[in-house]
């Protein structure tokens, strides 16, 4: 059989992943529910004073979305590993990094994008000032793909393991630190009236770098853990 072109392979991967996710579309709501519950915990723990909640709103939304993304990461390669299609991807003649990039992109579209869509709403629950909302969404648009890409590398390293949840968190969270600092930092700067462009630009620069390097690293990591 003659192998198809790389672009058709990528399209096939994307179509397949989207179909699989569409069949289990109920699951797509889980990260949103999780983020909503985490957000709801903060007023319960800290008290309902709007002033206090407003001060921490952006950071809390950021952390809640980060944790929701962390929980969703596990599903990135899990089912593909279990049914053996991940090994087929590794064996395919097309560049593995590109195929994995497509998978990560689909994963981001289906888990992170809905979260970003509800982020202003979550901010509203914590009395986030209206003018910070735009910065929050912008920061999340730059930060969540970065989180997905970094997370994908670590998921690739733990792919063959049972019960990798806690370990994955241990591997991923230190790598998330800079993203969180710049993302939440931009929101906080906007809230206090400081210039917020610089952290966003740093995030964008890191995103460009990660877009190029993370799929390659992910492919290398996957080859190690499937060898």
């Amino acid at each position: 059989m003659r192998p198809g072109s790389t672009s058709s392979a990528c399209a096939a991967v994307i179509r397949r992943d989207l179909t699989l996710i569409w069949r289990r579309r109920g699951d797509a709501l889980n990260p949103i529910l999780f983020a909503l519950m985490v957000i709801a915990l903060f007023p319960l723990a800290l008290g309902p004073e709007p002033e206090q909640l407003r001060r921490i709103a952006a950071g809390v939304v950021f952390v809640a979305l980060l944790l929701a993304g962390l929980l969703a990461l596990d599903t990135l390669f899990r089912s593909d590993y279990e049914d053996g299609s991940l090994e087929q991807l590794v064996l395919s003649p097309h560049p593995l990094s590109l195929l994995l990039g497509c998978k990560v992109a689909v994963h981001w579209l289906t888990t992170a994008l809905p979260l970003i869509a509800v982020a202003p709403l979550l901010g509203e629950l914590l009395h986030l000032p209206g003018d910070v909302r735009g910065v929050l969404v912008l920061a999340l648009l730059l930060a969540t793909p970065l989180l997905s890409l970094i997370g994908a590398v670590c998921v690739a390293l733990t792919v063959g393991m049972h019960r990798s949840g806690m370990l994955l968190a241990l591997l991923v969270l230190p790598l998330y630190v800079p993203v969180l600092i710049f993302g939440a930092g931009a929101c906080n700067a906007a809230q206090t009236g400081l210039p917020f462009l610089a952290p966003l630009l740093w995030l964008a620069a890191a995103l460009v770098l990660a877009l190029v390097l993370a799929p390659l690293a992910c492919a290398a990591a996957l080859r190690i853990s499937l060898s």
Binding site: P178, I181, F182, G185, P199
Partner: peptide, 9 residues
Amino acid sequence: IVHFSVNWW
């Protein structure tokens, strides 16, 4: 990157 970001933070 961590060192730089933490300094900035």
